[in-house]
Amino acid sequence: MLPKNTSESKKRQSSPSFSPTPEYVSRIYFLLRKEFGDVNSPLQYSKDYEFAISVILSAQCTDERVNQVTPILFKELPTLESLASAPLKKIEKLIYSTGFYKNKAKSVSGFANLLLNEYDGKLPKSIKELIKLPGIGRKTANVVLNEIHHISEGFVVDTHVKRISKKLGLTKQTDPVKVEKDLMQNIQPEYWMDLSLYFIFLGRKYCKAHKTFCETCILRKECPSSTSPKD
């Protein structure tokens, strides 16, 4: 059941700046859940390490493109051992269309080697350990923990999440690290995993970077940045 839309709604409508309450966050969560249902990463994979590599390749690249590239990559190099021993030129050729292919090839090769030799091929279960792997930063580590281990140590912050969370009044920051800190402070931990994906889907469907569709957005009555009438 959705928390009641109390006087906080009127406060949001009259002021662009407010302190988000747990009730407000819960309403956002359940409205987005109603819109998008159960969510998982759109990246396709069959093995845990394949997912991590897919996330590495997704930097500055669409999920759709990554999903076109990875089946070929993992068919040509079907094991962690084959990825670790493959010449960089071969990896570069296979992932070329994802962009920044030289740096990504180095990350994929380094990731495969370290995961194989230091972690026995198994993805670590903490951000602290994951970020030791080449190509894995804090955001990627959060994504991997959420999807593979169903653990939420933090809040995934990409460009969509950064934009949406600011519009919703959940942060005033622009630096991803500071945005994540605000989100972890303002959002109940049990919502972290799903809300990060919900914000991404919301950003792709309604709240695009260059155009918003407030009139049809599920959060039009809640969002303090909405241009749609609240009543």
Results as ranks from 00 to 15, higher is better:
M1H: 10
L2H: 14
P3C: 07
T6Y: 02
E8W: 15
E8L: 09
K10C: 00
K11Q: 10
R12I: 06
S15V: 00
P16F: 13
P16E: 11
S19V: 10
Y24T: 02
S26I: 04
K34D: 05
E35C: 04
D48V: 01
E50T: 12
F51N: 05
A52T: 09
I53T: 03
S58F: 02
A59P: 11
C61P: 14
T62P: 04
N67M: 11
P71R: 02
F74T: 05
E76R: 14
E76W: 00
L80Y: 08
L80I: 11
E81Y: 05
E81G: 00
E81I: 05
L83P: 13
S85K: 14
A86D: 11
A86R: 11
P87W: 14
K90A: 05
E92L: 09
K93R: 15
K93N: 13
Y96K: 10
S97C: 13
S97Q: 15
T98Y: 04
G99Y: 03
G99E: 08
Y101C: 08
K102G: 00
N103C: 07
N103G: 15
V108L: 04
F111V: 07
A112C: 08
L114F: 12
L114H: 11
L114G: 00
L114K: 15
L115I: 12
L115K: 11
E118C: 13
E118M: 07
E118H: 15
G121I: 10
L123C: 06
K125L: 10
E129M: 11
P134K: 01
G137H: 05
T140V: 13
L145E: 07
L145I: 09
N146H: 14
E147F: 03
E147W: 07
H150D: 10
H150F: 04
S152T: 13
S152V: 09
S152A: 15
E153F: 01
F155D: 01
D158K: 11
T159H: 08
I164G: 02
K166G: 08
K166A: 15
L168I: 03
G169A: 04
T171I: 06
K172I: 08
T174E: 14
P176K: 01
V177Q: 13
E180K: 04
D182W: 07
Q185A: 13
I187S: 06
Q188K: 12
Q188T: 12
E190T: 01
E190I: 03
D194R: 03
L195C: 04
Y198V: 03
F199I: 10
F201M: 15
R204S: 12
C207I: 08
C207P: 02
K208Y: 00
A209L: 08
H210C: 10
T212N: 15
C214G: 11
C217V: 11
C217D: 06
L219I: 12
R220A: 03
E222P: 00
S225F: 14
S228Q: 14
P229S: 12
K230C: 00
D231Q: 09
D231K: 09
